[in-house]
Design a protein around this nucleic acid. Structure first.
Lengths: 132, 132
DNA sequence: ATTGTTGCAAATATTTTGCATTGTG
DNA sequence: CACAATGCAAAATATTTGCAACAAT
């Protein structure tokens, strides 16, 4: 396997992911990193995001909006997609890891894990729509 | 809203989805429908798949393999993705609808539902890998 | 010096869309 | 006859990749 070398672009991308709470798309990462490295290219952003995912330092999230989102928090947690404002949020909730056992009962393969995406209205959109 | 007219292409696509167990991609639907309608175009397939989804007669499934898969069975059920053979399967398992309540506890928005994708090794790949 | 990484641009690949034509109601 | 649906091709969109230059070890 190839060795890994430091790059300031990659470090900046990793730090941005860790600091961001919005689960940014590659495009959004690109626009933010450009403020630090005006010459960075979108290809480099994609390469580094994929690198981070493959090295367990970021998660790929797919909420069906046509963009892949990235999450710098790799600890297991669940996500929520607001179908009104299209925001992708972290959910602070009790563990549902037990659903793996439910899925495994009567299944002859191996359930290694799952990804869940809850959807509905986020707190802000709920309030907004109440007033209409 | 525009009225809906019958088309034999759409009916064939719907029937194919209902008969198929493999959660086909648009391309696979296209190749199969071409055996009945050799002149059908991929655009028509996409338009009809989207039509069916928007009219509650099919589901869009995203398992992260870069293709959207379609499911003619609209009753709530869960899916499994084998990361070895890349197959997308239905899971016959007990309901896990209660996770909506777990997600809603302490959440100020509205949880309307969820999509889950379990992943791991399908029965066949499990056996295959055992022998290596 | 070696080779991983970048920036740029071109290429991929999937899905959508414009438009003239065909088909349904 | 009105207009929804089709077939075809072109366009749009997101992501990947080839390559020469640059930078880390």
């Amino acid at each position: 396997m190839p060795s890994i070398r430091y790059s300031k672009q990659r470090e900046a991308i990793k730090n941005y992911l860790l600091s961001s709470k919005v689960h940014p798309t590659a495009e959004i990462v690109y626009e933010n990193i450009k403020e630090i490295f005006p010459n960075i290219s979108l290809g480099t952003v994609y390469r580094n995001l994929n690198f981070l995912v493959e090295h367990g330092q970021a998660l790929r999230l797919d909420c069906g909006d046509g963009f892949i989102h990235f999450d710098g928090c790799t600890m297991p947690h669940n996500h929520f997609f607001c179908h009104n404002c299209k925001m992708l949020l972290d959910l602070d909730m009790d563990s549902i890891e037990h659903i793996n056992k439910i899925a495994n009962a009567g299944f002859n393969g191996i359930i290694e894990g799952h990804t869940v995406l809850f959807y509905g209205l986020c707190p802000e959109c709920k309030e907004l729509l109440k007033k209409i």
